[in-house]
Design a binder for these strands. Structure first.
Length: 411
DNA sequence: TCTGGGGTCCTAGGACCC
DNA sequence: TCTGGGGTCCTAGGACCC
């Protein structure tokens, strides 16, 4: 094939009709764990009510992924494990395996990339590919089916492929009947396939927006599509109204973004198995999340100018506080001290805390300016502490990877 | 039944500057 | 001494996604 002299997105935008695929792994974490278990000679958990979750003995664990038989019983993602067990006492529970999931993800992404290099990874288990230059509307389904079958044959798990004339329609289509299916949603099919759906099924319509819309008598995506901009703006604000109006009518001109966007913020949080009041416990958790967040920004060569801290109470209300630093930092102690100071302002020291978290934002790559005259004289000590922490942590991660590789070789 | 963890984007009000 | 209006930055909070 002769390579095009133009960027791929330049050519089609001008005269080729857009054809977008959205590939979505069916019950991703559950399918991926199932593949691993099947390879080990275990029964296929996809065929029985089963879930992936955190520690089942922790009352606060929730379901991360559920098999189709489990979903049919009403066990969905984010259901508390205790509740799921009440619904189905024989539920099979497996723990997540992040390293394995990453490998499965890389596997299916690289197959998709062979179909089109114009690929946007949307999450660990979803991607868009721009097929505008690779097929025509009349053979799109054939290619999508081939892609879906190739993933199943090579990797052992199923995907849904949504085919449409833009990203929104492709994504909506991949959400139709599952698993292991190809669906189309062309603009000409919007009226028939998308408008009858409940408004909640439209991308970006969450619980709150649904409540607001249904209170106004808007039940289906079709109702929303026909609603005047004036009313919609009063309900959800101008910017969001415009987006919803376009989307409900099946329009979306956002491109398939091949560049991986840089992170804009990092955060970590810890939920306690019991609500806590002891400042020592809270501070230990704050210390832990500060170490994690600061390690991540150093790993990615960032410095942060804003630090925020937040606490969540029993009733799920959140208080948070953020502050701007005089100069960007990646030093754990600096971040932790700001967080400690703000925690003192945000928390009364008495109300039990369910969760504590810490975040950093306003990230730059600029190298820290060392103003030794004004800098805390302990800063060198702090940096050395961080260096040793990072070294140990990466050794730990290396060891984990090595153990994993060894195990794989044995299989 | 009792709700994890990690992100993005938007809005609104106040401070400050010109 | 008292005044308008626009732009920008900051913080708090809320909604959505997987």
């Amino acid at each position: 094939m002769i390579p095009s002299p133009y960027p791929e997105d330049f050519v089609y935008l001008h005269f080729v009709p857009r054809i977008i695929f959205h590939i979505d792994v069916n019950s991703a974490f559950l399918s991926w764990s199932a593949v691993k278990l099947v390879r080990e000679g275990q029964p296929d958990i996809r065929l029985v009510p089963s879930v992936v979750s955190g520690d089942p003995s922790d009352r606060r664990s929730i379901i991360t992924a559920a098999s189709i038989p489990a979903k049919k019983m009403g066990i969905k993602t984010a259901t508390p494990v205790t509740m799921a067990l009440r619904i189905c006492p024989t539920l099979v529970i497996v723990r997540g395996d992040w390293e394995w999931y990453k490998q499965c993800s890389e596997g299916f992404i690289s197959i998709c990339r062979r179909y089109s290099p114009v690929l946007q990874q949307f999450s660990i288990d979803e991607c868009f590919i721009d097929m505008s230059l690779r097929c025509k509307a009349d053979n799109a389904v054939e290619l999508a089916t081939q892609l879906k079958d190739e993933i199943k044959a090579q990797l052992g798990f199923t995907v849904n492929v949504g085919v449409g004339s833009n990203k929104l329609l492709a994504k909506m289509a991949s959400d139709f009947e599952k698993p292991d299916k190809v669906h189309t949603l062309w603009e000409s099919e919007v009226r028939e396939k998308m408008w009858p759906l409940p408004v909640r099924e439209l991308l970006w319509v969450g619980k709150k927006t649904e409540a607001r819309l249904t209170a106004y008598g808007i039940g289906t995506i079709g109702d929303l599509a026909k609603l005047g901009m004036g009313s919609l703006t009063r309900l959800v604000g101008q910017k969001f109204a415009q987006q919803l109006h376009e989307n409900a009518n099946g329009r979306d001109d956002s491109p398939v973004e091949t560049e991986v966007a840089e992170a804009k913020s990092y955060s970590a949080e810890r939920t306690f198995s019991k609500d806590l009041t002891d400042p020592k416990d809270i501070d230990r958790a704050l210390f832990n999340v500060a170490c994690i967040v600061a390690h991540r920004i150093r790993r990615d060569d960032f410095r942060a100018s804003t630090v925020s801290v937040f606490v969540k109470y029993k009733d799920f209300t959140v208080s948070q506080k953020q502050t701007s630093l005089g100069q960007p930092t990646d030093v754990t102690a600096v971040i932790l001290n700001e967080a400690r100071r703000m925690l003192g302002e945000v928390w009364d020291g008495v109300t039990p805390i369910r969760q504590v978290g810490l975040g950093v934002s306003k990230l730059t790559h600029e190298s820290a300016i060392q103003m030794s005259l004004f800098e805390d004289p302990k800063m060198d000590y702090y940096r050395e502490w961080d260096r040793q922490f990072d070294e140990q942590r990466s050794n730990y991660e290396d060891a984990k990877m090595l153990a994993y590789e060894r195990k794989k070789k044995d299989e």
